[in-house]
Structure formats: structure tokens, C-alpha cells
Design a protein around this nucleic acid. Structure first.
Length: 388
RNA sequence: GGUGGGGUGGCCGAGUGGCUAAUGGCAGCAGACUGUAAAUCUGCCGGGCUUCGCCCUACGUAGGUUCGAAUCCUACCCCCACCA
């Protein structure tokens, strides 16, 4: 059954499960690489697959601006278009409401954007977001939400949270119409079942009562095949993010995957998993990869550093990615210094594999009942050399 | 040998009497990055120190003019072009 979630084992709040989608299963906990424009920046889909990534993200706002959902749709939908025949999730464009501050104005009807591409004026409403995502044909669509900064006061956080609930109603209503309507042949899903899930997003900033109200509002509107937690890692201190997750975990339904949006760094994955999160996504592995910052088991490595000029060592001797299996730090540094694009790609591949593998390891340890001790030791080693 | 042009911090290259430790660019070094306006951005980049500041040493070399010189004068050295 599409979008069923099997929970195999738990250890404390940590969970190991399997999410079913029309394009395959996702073993959780799992990290999902971000492919804003239908491509995990810099990587060939075969390379993404080799990192072990099970599901990829696309972005509604960006794909709407270019090439336009009608182009994606006429070329067979996002899976065929981007040659990714596994599960795909699209973000609603809600995050752009937050990150394109200065280029947009938020109203109850929707958000008026000025395109960052050509300056043209655009409007995205909850209905429009759902329609775009439907045309793109992702397995999982996200509700259009209103994200506020980590430091948002109660008034602003409440406004964003309540608006997100009202927008959820509109997303759900429009999505229900689309799901019932006959789909064009290109979108037919062979194994049957509902072809696209819609997931809600818990908002409420850092305020306990607002997060609680948000979740209650969402559950009243359910049932849902998955629930996302948004508006975290947007400037608030880490302990605050942890606190919000801890307050949320007991109230979240056990039978649906929890997706912590936009997170995170390696330590955030383990901290999130320990607090009951099943799915993560983040641009950090690819962005940092392009910027020459690599995650390794003992901390973080600045690939451009002269320290590695003559190094024959792999980035991380414990890593099983193709980069670490093939290239020396000295060569990777050379590629960055020479501004050869292969360097950006190789470190991106490593970083994505690093996070995907962290999810795999966490899952195995949860299944074995050894997650807590393993995680503590992992974090200790990771922080030995200092910062994140 | 003659004539003309030129020698500035690792490199290139501005600057033609005080606002110049000396614009820029490159190279070098470090940092940031969390639902991607990002192969981006920021900082440092003569030496030393108690580094929101102070002290040295600096614009081919050596003198000189001047209150004050990378900037003006003299000599010398070197480079380039052309002519012998």
C-alpha cells in the first residue's frame, strides 16, 4: 500500500522503519539529498544512487520559475525528466517565503514574489503550490506553509503557524480534487494506490504552546501519511531546536514518518533521530561540498587547506564512497585550488554519502538496540577536534 | 657606444611633493554556509607587538633638495626598444 509506514524497532524515541511510496521504499532514518532544480547539484543521478540515497527533493518555486511545471509535465514528470526513478518529494515553495525576504509579500491569499531570475511578479497560493506539485508528479507533496525566523516572537510565530493551518486546509482541499480527477497517462502509477501524498508541516517557531497548537490543528485535519516539522534550524540555538523536538515527539503519531525539514549537519541527524525524527533533508552536503568543506568521522575538513597539499590519504579512511575509495586529499585540494569542477563534485558525493551512511548506521543500531551508546561515541569522536 | 622608455610589496599594476604601509587585480591563508537567489560570501594578506592601537622597515642603489619624497635633482646599476 502506497505511503504505508512500517515501524520495525524503536529505542527510546529513536525509530527504524520503512516508508512505502509509488516509486519504492525508503528505509528510515534516512537523509534525503536536495535537488532543487531536479538535480542534486553537480551529481549525475547514477552518482546520487551510488551514495545510497533513497529519495530526492525537488523545489516547487524553483521548478515553477524554470523550466515551468508544464515543461516538466510534458517531458514525463519529474521522475522521468530528471532520470530519478525512485521516490521523490517536492517542497512547496514555503521556504522561499522565508528565504526570499525582500522579494516577496505575504498575504492571506498567498505570497507575491518577485522572481529572483528575471524580476517578474508571481503569486503562489496554497492551491497553486499543490497544482504545481501535482504537475511535477512527486510522490510526496508538501503543504504550502509560512516559515518565520528562529528568533520570531510569539505574535509573529503565531501568525505564521495559524496561517500555515489555514493554508493546509486549502492545500488539502485542492489536492483532494486533483487526486480524484483522472490523471494524464504520463502520471499513471503502475502498482496502484494513491499516486501522491500530501504532508502537513508543523510550525510555531520556538514557542511550546504554538508548536502544540500547530500539531493539534494538523492532527484534527488528518489522517496523514507523514508529518513534517518545519521552521527549525533557521537561526535558533541548537538546544532550542532539541527542546522543540522533545516536546513534539510524544504527541506525534507513531504510525507516520516524521520529517525534519532542512536539517542538517551530521550531529543534527543523530540528535534528531534520538528525538524521533525519521527523515531529513539539507543542502549542506552539496553546498559545503562545493565550497570545499567535507565531513569526516573525526570532524570537518577544509579541503583547500595547505595541510593536505602532499596528503595521500583519503578524506575519510572509514568512508566507503567512491571519492574516498579513489582520490587522495592532495588531489582533491589540487582540484579546488585549480577550480576544476570535478573537485566540487567529488566532495559533494562524499558529503552526501556521509549523511546517507549515517542514517544507515543509525538504523542498524536502532534495530540492534545499540543506538544510544553508538551515537554518543560517534558524536564524541566527531567533536574531538573542535567545532562542527 | 647613442637615443628613448622603464625599474613599486610573491606576481601584474596604479600612484608623479603631505590625506601612502602605499588603489586595483592575481596568487596565498582563514572563516561562514542547515526545506539551495550560493562552484557563493566574508575577513586577512611587509615585519613585530600588549593588534579598535603602537613601533620598525619599505617604492633599483647611493647621495641631495624640502618642514615633508615612491613622487623633484645628481650619479651609478639593471631591463626593454630602436639606431650604430
Amino acid at each position: 500500500m502506497s505511503f504505508a509506514f512500517d515501524l520495525h524497532a524503536t529505542e527510546g524515541e529513536a525509530r527504524a522503519g520503512t516508508l512505502h511510496t509509488p516509486h519504492g521504499e525508503v528505509a528510515t532514518p534516512a537523509f534525503m539529498p536536495v535537488g532543487t532544480y531536479g538535480t542534486v547539484r553537480g551529481l549525475h543521478p547514477d552518482e546520487v544512487e551510488r551514495t545510497g540515497a533513497q529519495v530526492m527533493l525537488g523545489n516547487t518555486y524553483h521548478l515553477h520559475l524554470r523550466p515551468g511545471e508544464e515543461v516538466v509535465e510534458s517531458l514525463g514528470g519529474l521522475h522521468a525528466f530528471s532520470h530519478w526513478n525512485r521516490p521523490m518529494l517536492t517542497d512547496s515553495g514555503g521556504f522561499q517565503v522565508f528565504s526570499l525576504e525582500g522579494l516577496r509579500t505575504i498575504a492571506e491569499e498567498g505570497v507575491a514574489f518577485q522572481s529572483h531570475v528575471d524580476g517578474s511578479h508571481r503569486t503562489i497560493t496554497p492551491e497553486k503550490s499543490v497544482e504545481i506539485q501535482w504537475a511535477l508528479g512527486a510522490d510526496i507533496a508538501m503543504q504550502f506553509d509560512h516559515v518565520v525566523p528562529g528568533g520570531a516572537d510569539h505574535t509573529l510565530a503565531r501568525e505564521g503557524m495559524e496561517r500555515s493551518l489555514r493554508w493546509l486546509d486549502r492545500c488539502k482541499a485542492r489536492h483532494a480534487e486533483l487526486v480524484l480527477a483522472p490523471r494524464p497517462p504520463l502520471h499513471h502509477v503502475e502498482k496502484g494506490g494513491s499516486s501522491q501524498a500530501l504532508w502537513p508541516i508543523v510550525q510555531g517557531g520556538t514557542h511550546t504552546d504554538l508548536r502544540k497548537a500547530s500539531l493539534e490543528g494538523i492532527l484534527e485535519r488528518g489522517p496523514w501519511t507523514g508529518i513534517a516539522i518545519g521552521g527549525l534550524s533557521v537561526g535558533e540555538p541548537k538546544p532550542v531546536m532539541h527542546r522543540v523536538l522533545e516536546e513534539l515527539a510524544p504527541a506525534l503519531p507513531r504510525g507516520a514518518p516524521r520529517y525534519l525539514m532542512g536539517v542538517g549537519f551530521p550531529q543534527d541527524l543523530l540528535e534528531g533521530i534520538a528525538r524521533g525524527v525519521d527523515l531529513f533533508d539539507c543542502v549542506a552536503p552539496t553546498r559545503n561540498g562545493r565550497h570545499g568543506s567535507a565531513w569526516v568521522s573525526t570532524g570537518r575538513v577544509n579541503v583547500r587547506s595547505a595541510l593536505h597539499r602532499l596528503s595521500k590519504e583519503p578524506l575519510d579512511p572509514e568512508c566507503d564512497c567512491t571519492t574516498c575509495g579513489t582520490f587522495s586529499r592532495g588531489y582533491l585540494r589540487h582540484l579546488f585550488v585549480a577550480e576544476e569542477i570535478l573537485g566540487l563534485r567529488l566532495v559533494s558525493i562524499h558529503n552526501v554519502r556521509f549523511l546517507v551512511r549515517l542514517g544507515e548506521l543509525a538504523r542498524a543500531h536502532i534495530m540492534a538496540g545499540t543506538f544510544e551508546g553508538w551515537s554518543r561515541e560517534w558524536l564524541r569522536r566527531y567533536h574531538l577536534k573542535g567545532d562542527s
